[in-house]
Structure formats: structure tokens, C-alpha cells
Amino acid sequence: MNELVKMVVVLTILSASSGLILASVRDKTLDQIKFQQLVNEKAPAIKKILGDTSNDPLTSKFEISEGKAPIEFFVGSYGGDPNTVVFETFGTGFDGKIGLMVGVNLENDQIKGIGVTTHSETPGIGSRAKTEPAFAAQFAGMDLNNSFKVKTDGGKVDALSGATYTSRGVCMAATNASEIYKRLKPQLIEKAKTASNKPAPKEKE
């Protein structure tokens, strides 16, 4: 009996202190990790999608939360007109979540461009969703009011050869983006205007 009590006590104390340490480390590194993800994963995708904007999309952003975690929207202005927003959605690929940045033109609902951010797909196979420009390029110009499917499932998207699951994951993320967009469009148009009125870097004005 005595031994049993000791085992329980030791394990409990050990687990509790482990939890305490992890919580505090996570707390300390949370902002830095978010920053790293913004710089290393999101920023390149956003820049690629938006190209030559007249503002800095990384600073003119806003958040909308729908109960769950807030979604960040980055606004791109062309000639002073904040008509494009970029946001991240997720789909399930071959090996976990695939993050996808989707840029959409608020005026005609057309996709401006997409870019894969965080993923854990097989290097050299599924990872081509991120590295092969041709795969992302085929989404540009499509209507974001529709859902997305690969050709074998009866859709319009050419899957990456050998990476059907990954391609489906990207389509799933794009479909999620479509749903979010349809739900939030009125809010987006309004908020994009106010966000782009915030002070932006001078040299680009």
C-alpha cells in the first residue's frame, strides 16, 4: 500500500511540474513563434499572391473571430483601392494540416492567387504543392463562390501527379476559404477599407 501511494505521488508531482514548465515555456515563446510563422511562412506567400500593392499588406490587416480562433485578413490595395484580401485556411492533406493562403478580389470574387504555408507533406512529393508554381497558378482567376475539387473527383483542379491526397487537401482548404468568404464578405469589404486607412509605410504611397 505504501509503495502504491509513493508511485502515485511521484508520478503526479512529476506530471504536474512538467505541465507547469511547459505552460510557462509556451507562454514565453508564443509571440516569438507567431512572429516567426508570419515572417517565414505567411509573408512570402502573401507577397507572392499580392505582388505590387500600393500599401504594405503585412501592416494593414484585421482580425475577425467567429467563436473559434480569430482569422487574420491582410489587405492589398491597388492604386489606393483596397480591393483584395488574403487569409489563411486549412485542409487535411496526406500527413496532417495544410495551411493555405488565399487571396481574393472583393469586387469580382475571383481568386487572386494561392500559396501553401505550413504543411508536413512528404518532401519531394506532396511538398510540391508549395514549391511548384504551376500547381498554385491554376487557382488564379477561379471564382471563390464555388467549391474546389481535383479532376479525378469531378472538379477542375489538376492534381499533382503522385500527390492526390495533398492536392485534395489544398482543394479542401480552398473550399473552406470559399465558405468563410461567402459568410464574411460584407464584413470584409467594410473592414478592408478601414484597415487600409491605417498609416502605411510612406515610400509606397
Binding site: 509503495e3 508511485m7 511521484v10 512538467s18 515555456v25
Partner: peptide
Amino acid sequence: IPAKVRIACFIIIIATFVTVVELLMQA
């Protein structure tokens, strides 16, 4: 650490440090 639960204790200790490393490396 009681000998009977030593493996469980090792795993808790190792997992804690691994997660710390993962977070630090990510940051």
C-alpha cells in the same frame, strides 16, 4: 522514483525537455 514506475517517469522527463526544445527551436 519507485523502480516500478521508472519508465513512465523517464518518459515524462524526456517528453518535457523535447517539447521545450521544440518550442525554443520554433521560436
